[in-house]
Structures are given as structure tokens and as C-alpha cells.
Simulated assay, not measured.
Amino acid sequence: MAALPYWRLSSFYLFYFALLGSTAPFLALYFDHLGFPSARIGELVAIPMLMRCVAPNLWGWLGDYTGRRLAIVRFGAVCTLACFSLILFDTSYAWLAMVMALHAFFWHAVLPQFEVITLAHLQAQTARYSQIRLWGSVGFILTVVGLGRLFEWFSLDAYPLALLLIMAGIVGSSWWVPNAQPPASGQRPAGEGFFKQLLSPGVLVFYISVALMQLSHGPYYTFLTLHLEHLGYSRGIIGMLWAVGVVAEVLMFMAMSRVLQRFSVRHVLITSFALASLRWLLLGNFADHLPVLIFAQLLHAATFGSYHAAAIHFLQRSFGPRQQGQGQALYAALSGTGGAMGALYSGYSWNALGAGWTFAIASLAAFIAAILAATCMKEERV
């Protein structure tokens, strides 16, 4: 067995999620800085998520058909950087919408294919996935804290340049990673098609729950920073609060191999969905109380950490080697569909209904996902 390229794989996750740490807390804040109302902000944030409905499936099919996943990752990283650089030329709504769509089409080509490459390198060591993925959380923390402080001192006009630097890091790290292919044999029969496996018991319910979970994150990723700023928190404190959640996520990733040895994937998912429902209620109604806010951010360990790790294990065990790319791509696509719907509804409801009701809708979506997982998914222990 070849030595695991731990640091090369980890460096890619670090830069990739550093970009997410730069966009999730601050993209809506930047659009607000440009003077857009909440409805337009929701639409602009939703566009990259909507691209996840199309792009991952196209690139996933191409990756499964050609087997050249690393080439797709590198091509997607370069095109992401090139397309996003167009933001330097104009800040009108139509131009920004185009930039959001173009760069996201290529950005969403990258992660699902890289997940397959990582699992191929891990081979029988899939429990170590969380140890590699946690470096993505480290990248998120570094940028969310660093940019939070930076934007207390400097104007948000510097925001696009910060994103371009991180995208350049994604390009560089993608060329450092060695290639790997999934093994020819797998748990599922090689002749079994993707759609046949998709119709296996519990798989469709899993994907519906994924969409609902990501829909519930819509207000969080779109308006949490603006919500906390309106409650009187400084940008530096807001950045640290985002980081608290990701620190909790890192700790959960470090513990996930032991958690999944004791509990089934189904139980982990149910718990994650239920805690997400609680978290959104707390953020919508009690975010002005700092201890409650910190507790709600600590719940990120469940609403992303345990949820995502369990989901990756579910996908890895539900699809054969030749369908891994499509399985990961559909996961990304439905995450994008749910996330886009969440961003859109929260953009329209934020001013009309307020933060409390907007987060209450998110809480309901996560609760429905918990019920579906509890009633329709089968037990499966890692």
C-alpha cells in the first residue's frame, strides 16, 4: 500500500474551506456594503448554490466516464479563479450575478471529485477521512477570524482581493496532490447502475433529508453576520463566533471514527438533524444573549461536523466505485438546491417576517429531515 499523502490532501481541504470561510460569513455583508437590499442579497447568495444543482452532476458524470478526476479538479480550480477575477471590473447587480454563476459552475466541479480522490487514497482507512477533512475546518477558522479582524480596520472594498488570493491557494494545492483511482472492486456489484443504487432502501430518503438540512442552513449562511451586526456585535466578535462553531466541528471530526464505531450512521444523522432544529430556534430568538449564542454555535459540531462525516460514510457505502462520483455529485447538487431555496426564502422573509420566523422555518425543515431519517432509513454501522 502506498503511503498516504496526508499533508497534500489536507492542504487542499485547508484552502478550499478557507474560501468557504471567506464567503459564508462575509459575502452577504459585502453585498450589503454595496447597497443591495435583503431580497437582492438573498438572490445573489442563492446563485452559487443553484449552480450546485447542475454543475456537480455534469462534472460527476464526466469524472466517472473518463476517470480523470484530478484533471477536473485542477481545471475547475483555475477556471474558478479566472471567472471570479471578473468581479474587479464592475459591481452592478447583473454583473455580480454573472460572476456568481460563472465561478460557481467551476468551483462546484472541484469538491465532489476531490472527495473520491481522497477516499481512493485512503482505501481501507476510511475512518481517517475525518482527520484529513478537519484541515478544511482549520482553513475556515483562520479566514473567518482573520477577515473579521481585517474588516474592522479596513474597508470591505478589499474583500474581492482576499477571495482571489485564497482561490490562488486552491489552484496551487490542486497541483500538489497526487492522483489516485477508486479500487476496481467494491462492496456493490460493478454492473449495478447508478439509478438502481439510487433506488436502494433509504438512499432516496437520505437525499431528501440532505436537501432539507441545507435548506435549513439558508438563513444561517446568508444573514447570520448581518443579524449579529444589527444586534450590536462587532465584526471581530462575529468572526470569532463563526470560528467557535468550526472549532466544535473540528473536535467532532477528530472524534467521528469512534462515534461511528459506536453508533449507526442513521442515529448520527437523526441526532444531527434534531440538533439543527434546536440551533435555528436559538439563533432566531435568543442571539442577543451571548451564552445562548455560544451554545448555538457549539451545535455546529452536529449540524455540520457529524452530519457531513456520516453523510460521506453513507455515500461511500451506498455506491460502487464507478458511481462514487455521481453519488457525491448528487449529494452536492441537492445540498445546493436546498441551500439556494434557503437563501431565497430567507432573503424574501427577512424584512417581511423578521429573524425569528425566518429561523423558525429553518427549524421546521431540519425537524422534518429528522423524522424522515428516523422512519425511513435503515440501520448501518460503519
Rank of each mutant, 00 (worst) to 15 (best):
142 L>D: 02
382 V>N: 09
196 K>E: 11
96 L>A: 05
207 Y>H: 08
280 W>S: 09
53 C>I: 07
58 L>D: 03
50 L>R: 04
192 E>T: 14
30 Y>E: 07
192 E>N: 06
335 S>T: 15
194 F>P: 00
257 S>Y: 08
119 L>H: 02
280 W>D: 01
314 F>Q: 01
354 G>L: 07
32 D>R: 15
378 K>P: 15
6 Y>K: 08
103 H>I: 03
327 G>P: 10
263 F>S: 09
294 I>Q: 01
322 R>A: 15
164 L>K: 10
140 F>E: 00
3 A>Y: 04
123 Q>W: 05
281 L>H: 13
359 F>T: 12
197 Q>K: 03
361 I>E: 02
279 R>V: 04
126 T>Y: 04
106 F>K: 03
337 T>M: 13
158 A>C: 09
133 R>S: 01
239 G>S: 14
252 M>C: 12
356 G>D: 13
343 A>D: 02
300 H>T: 11
82 A>M: 11
276 A>D: 03
64 D>V: 13
5 P>K: 08
53 C>G: 12
264 S>R: 02
21 G>K: 04
73 V>A: 06
140 F>C: 03
178 P>F: 08
141 I>T: 06
303 T>K: 00
87 I>R: 12
270 I>A: 05
186 G>Y: 09
300 H>F: 04
64 D>G: 10
356 G>A: 10
313 H>T: 01
327 G>S: 08
271 T>V: 10
365 A>K: 01
113 Q>C: 13
37 P>F: 07
181 Q>D: 13
115 E>A: 15
183 P>Y: 12
224 L>D: 01
316 Q>T: 13
150 L>N: 05
380 E>H: 07
225 T>E: 13
372 L>K: 07
198 L>R: 06
163 L>K: 05
109 A>D: 05
340 A>Y: 05
65 Y>L: 10
97 A>G: 09
243 A>G: 15
47 I>N: 02
314 F>T: 00
239 G>I: 12
355 A>N: 08
326 Q>I: 02
291 P>W: 05
187 Q>F: 14
31 F>V: 12
117 I>Q: 00
328 Q>C: 03
256 M>T: 00
7 W>Q: 07
175 W>N: 04
101 A>T: 10
274 A>W: 09
146 G>C: 09
118 T>Q: 00
33 H>C: 08
340 A>H: 04
164 L>E: 07
221 Y>A: 05
50 L>M: 15
171 V>H: 12
64 D>Y: 06
51 M>A: 13
26 F>G: 06
161 L>Y: 13
237 I>E: 11
290 L>H: 15
175 W>P: 15
192 E>Y: 03
61 W>I: 12
193 G>Q: 10
193 G>S: 07
161 L>I: 09
260 L>H: 08
325 G>P: 00
154 F>S: 08
114 F>L: 01
183 P>G: 09
195 F>L: 15
98 M>D: 02
355 A>C: 10
266 R>N: 09
51 M>R: 03
